[in-house]
Each structure stands twice: as C-alpha cells, then as structure tokens.
Design a binder for these strands. Sequence first.
DNA 1: TAAACGTATAAGCATCTGTTTATATGTTGT
DNA 2: ACAACATATAAACAGATGCTTATACGTTTA
Lengths: 116, 116
Amino acid sequence: MLLSDSSLNSTSMSQITEALKSRKTFSLLADTFQALGDDSRIRIVWVLSKGERNVGDLADLLKMSQPAVSHHLRMLRNLRLVRVRREGRTSFYSLDDQHINRLLHEGIEHVEDLLP
Amino acid sequence: MLLSDSSLNSTSMSQITEALKSRKTFSLLADTFQALGDDSRIRIVWVLSKGERNVGDLADLLKMSQPAVSHHLRMLRNLRLVRVRREGRTSFYSLDDQHINRLLHEGIEHVEDLLP
DNA sequence: TAAACGTATAAGCATCTGTTTATATGTTGT
DNA sequence: ACAACATATAAACAGATGCTTATACGTTTA
C-alpha cells in the first residue's frame, strides 16, 4: 500500500521520488556505459574523438563491415553519444558532446594505469 | 609476411606496436565500460561511491540476492574497479581509485543532461 | 528514369550475460 | 568440535547481444 497511507513513516515522499528518478537515471547510465562497453563501439568512439567521419571510412579504418558499423552507430545515436550530419548520400558522424570525450579519456587513463 | 620484410613500407614499426598497445587498451577499456554497463553493477558502484559496504548490506540496500551481489563484486574486483578488505567473516568493498568515481559522476552528468 | 552509390534495416544465428538455486569455503562463538 | 554466520563459487537456464547475409531506402549522376 505504497503512498496510500497518509501517516508518516520512514520513507518520505522526496525519498521515493528521488529513488524513482535514480532508477531511470541509473537505467540510462547503465545503457550508456554498456554502449561504450564493446570493443567495436569504443574503437568507433575513439576514432570519432579525433574528428568527424563518414560510415564507409569508419568501416575501412576499423576493418569492419559496413552494416556492422551502421548497426553500432545507430545504437550510439539512440543514446545521444554520437550525432549525424547528412550531406547528400553521405552521413558524417561525430561525438555528440564533450561528456563523451571526457568519459573516453577518463577510461583510457584508468586502464593505462593498469596495463604494464 | 608482417615484420619479415626489412624494407620500409607504409606501416612503421612504431605504428604497429602502437596499434597492438591500443588493441589491448581498448579491449580492457571495453571490459571496464561493460562492467559499469549493467543496472545492478552501476547501482553497486554508486552505493560504494558513498563509502565502504559489506556484501550483505549491499544486498539489502539494493534488494538483490547475496549470490548475485557477490557475483557482480567479483567481476568488478577482477577489473580493479573495487577492492575488498576482509575483517573476520565480513568483506568490506570500496571503489578502487578515484578514476572510478570520476567515471561514475561524468556519466551521471551526461545522463542528467538528457533526462527531462 | 535508370544505374550507381552510400547508408540503413531486417532476419537468422551462435555466443555471451545475469539470475536463481544449491552448495562450498572460511570464520566466530559456544 | 560443532553450529551459526558471512561470503564465495558452481551449474543451469532464459534472455540479450553482435555479427553476417541479404535487401531496402534515399541521393546523385548519366
């Protein structure tokens, strides 16, 4: 009978709404990290951190098939990690904001502390 | 015939070793992000960002089974995201270094920019 | 408008992941 | 030594994931 009893108990209203917000926040946060938690996608993000690229060039650079790259880009796009700029039949992708760049480089610093 | 021809070509030795280092770096980087890319684990990390906790308290706080928490902690431990301090039969976990805290909060900032 | 081009999407699949249930390991207290 | 306790590990299974192959979509050029 959550929220149906008007008497005060140990769980305040603000704590509940905060918990609900956190649920959504953490869910999106997990999705975001998961998107970065794939070898192919993190390499895509790394290339894009150097500057804008189109799909075909990404596929060539990373030696991946074009559909695979496109598939990953859609996922990154849905999570607002990358953005697309269309020019004719070519799609140019870039990192969506500086948060992504910082996440990437914070992660790189972390793993480089671990590697020999 | 990689590396067997002593003549210079377009791929220099330093580029090759750099690429090899990058491969391992990116592989570990992807594993690291993947470890954070799960709803249960990111919530564990979030609780630990507030301070040290033992396994049972984590399970209670996050309403997860003890084996599930233990399973996730092992993964986080293997990747050096958390560390453990044993005291009797109790294991206290905490974030391993400040990189993890920064990754967490950089991620939170990113998603809070997206959520309404 | 037809062909070429760059990209996006869909279906199918083998592999990976996270959970539960059950049990093992190690520690404390009697 | 034995029971209670805290945590760790293992096996098994449902669901998610990433790749390939095939095809569709939208744009440009002849």
